[in-house]
Measured scan of single mutants.
Amino acid sequence: NITNLCPFDEVFNATRFASVYAWNRKRISNCVADYSVLYNFAPFFAFKCYGVSPTKLNDLCFTNVYADSFVIRGNEVSQIAPGQTGNIADYNYKLPDDFTGCVIAWNSNKLDSKVGGNYNYLYRLFRKSNLKPFERDISTEIYQAGNKPCNGVAGFNCYFPLRSYGFRPTYGVGHQPYRVVVLSFELLHAPATVCGPKKST
């Protein structure tokens, strides 16, 4: 009989979020998941679920829940969905086509923008091939755009693969920082350890 609540607040209220190319993952297990707390949290810009209804989450049990978190621009949030393409979905964070879970995003301009620009948040701009679902690539190898080998030196046709967002408070909404948490639900042939409040007695 599990009684402790799942530590969703640790994920959602973290002081610093990860850059999207180096997205953070927390495994959540052996706890009671009260999703209504999240669902009623006012400032969400997006709360979209795939393969599961957000209002039914509290009735369900899962083997594991993974909480992935990172920061992207407002106009990139739409790429955090199954079957998407674009710089983020291709080179930074890719969801599987059969994704079961929820994508939760909110504007973090007050936290993550600075006058003069916040350059701490990076994304991958160049990559030889697209990421596989949930693949994480933190390499900083110089990207070779031409035929000539770069030998690890940036220059003509040789690019550092990461780019900084440089968030400023005055940017338009599409270019403002958004914090994103992706909850993915794993249902294995194993005992369920993460259940909603109704199922955990």
Rank of each mutant, 00 (worst) to 15 (best):
C6N: 07
P7E: 13
D34L: 05
N1P: 13
R163C: 15
F134S: 09
S184M: 08
N4H: 12
V180T: 06
N13Q: 08
N157G: 04
G101Q: 01
Y21N: 07
Y66L: 09
I28S: 04
A33E: 06
V71A: 05
R163N: 15
S19W: 03
T85G: 11
A22V: 06
P177C: 02
T193Q: 13
Q176R: 04
V71L: 06
I142S: 03
N109C: 05
L188I: 12
R25I: 02
Y165E: 00
V52R: 05
V194F: 11
P43S: 09
T15M: 08
K110Q: 10
T100D: 05
R127C: 02
R73Y: 04
A81R: 08
K132C: 07
F17V: 07
S113A: 14
S129I: 10
K94N: 07
F185C: 05
T85N: 11
P161F: 03
G74M: 04
I80H: 01
V153G: 12
N87V: 15
R136A: 07
T193W: 11
K132D: 10
D9Y: 13
N64K: 11
P177Q: 01
F44P: 13
D112G: 03
F167Q: 00
A105Q: 05
G51W: 04
S129M: 10
Y35W: 15
N58L: 08
N64P: 10
S164E: 07
Y21I: 06
C150V: 01
I138Y: 09
N40L: 09
C61P: 10
L57G: 06
A190R: 13
N92W: 02
D68N: 03
T100I: 14
I142H: 06
F44L: 12
C61E: 12
A81M: 07
A18T: 07
R27N: 11
S184K: 09
V11M: 07
Y178R: 03
E141M: 10
T140G: 11
Y119T: 08
S184H: 15
S113R: 01
T85L: 07
T15G: 09
Y50T: 04
G152T: 08
V180N: 01
G155F: 04
S29K: 11
R25N: 02
V11G: 03
Y91G: 05
G74N: 03
N151I: 09
G101D: 00
V65T: 07
Y119A: 08
F8Y: 08
R179V: 00
D68K: 04
V52K: 05
V65W: 05
S108N: 04
Q84H: 09
Y35N: 08
N1T: 12
L183W: 04
K26Y: 09
S200W: 14
T170C: 03
T140A: 13
R124M: 00
F167A: 00
D90C: 08
A46N: 13
T3A: 11
S200P: 14
L111D: 13
L111V: 13
A33V: 13
Y66E: 06
D59A: 11
N157P: 01
E186T: 11
N75K: 14
V180D: 00
N151R: 11
A22K: 10
N13R: 09
A14N: 09
F185Q: 04
N24Y: 07
K198M: 14
Y39A: 14
A14P: 06
R168G: 00
F167Y: 06
L131I: 13
R168N: 02
V194N: 12
T3I: 09
F126K: 05
G155D: 06
Y91F: 14
F126S: 03
K128V: 09
F45R: 15
R16H: 14
Y159L: 01
D34C: 07
G146F: 03
L5A: 13
A42P: 09
A192K: 13
A14T: 08
E186D: 14
N40G: 10
P191S: 13
S36F: 06
V153T: 14
Y123F: 15
S53A: 12
F45D: 15
V20G: 02
D137E: 05
S129T: 15
A192R: 14
V65H: 05
K198D: 13
T201F: 13
Q144S: 10
S36Q: 13
N1I: 09
E10F: 06
P96H: 05
Y165I: 03
A190E: 14
E186Q: 12
K132Y: 09
A89W: 02
N87C: 14
N118Y: 05
L125V: 06
F45Q: 15
L125W: 15
R124Y: 01
N118R: 05
Y35Q: 08
P43D: 10
S78I: 07
S164Q: 07
Y93W: 01
S113G: 08
G51S: 08
S139E: 10
P82T: 04
C195T: 12
Y171N: 00
T170V: 01
R179I: 00
Y35R: 08
G74E: 05
K48T: 10
V181D: 00
Y171A: 00
C195P: 12
K94I: 01
E141D: 14
N75V: 06
P177T: 01
E141W: 07
G152L: 07
L162E: 00
K110V: 08
T85F: 08
V52E: 04
Y165K: 01
T193E: 12
V173P: 07
G101E: 00
A105D: 00
K94F: 02
G174Y: 09
I28C: 07
S29E: 12
G51A: 07
V71Q: 01
R136K: 12
A89G: 05
E76H: 10
I88R: 03
F99N: 00
W23V: 02
Q84D: 03
N147H: 07
S53M: 10
Q144A: 10
S19Q: 05
Y35P: 08
Y50K: 02
H175R: 01
F126I: 04
R16C: 09
V11D: 03
D112Y: 03
A190V: 12
P54N: 10
V65G: 08
Y35F: 15
V71H: 02
R25P: 00
Q84L: 07
S108V: 05
N130T: 14
G174Q: 09
I80L: 07
E135P: 02
N4A: 12
A89E: 00
F126W: 09
R16W: 10
K48S: 08
D98K: 12
I28W: 15
N4Q: 14
N24V: 08
R124D: 00
P54M: 15
C195S: 12
N1Y: 09
H189Y: 12
W23F: 11
R136H: 08
K110D: 10
S108Q: 02
F126T: 04
G166M: 04
F99D: 00
C31A: 07
A33F: 15
A145S: 09
N107E: 05
S69V: 03
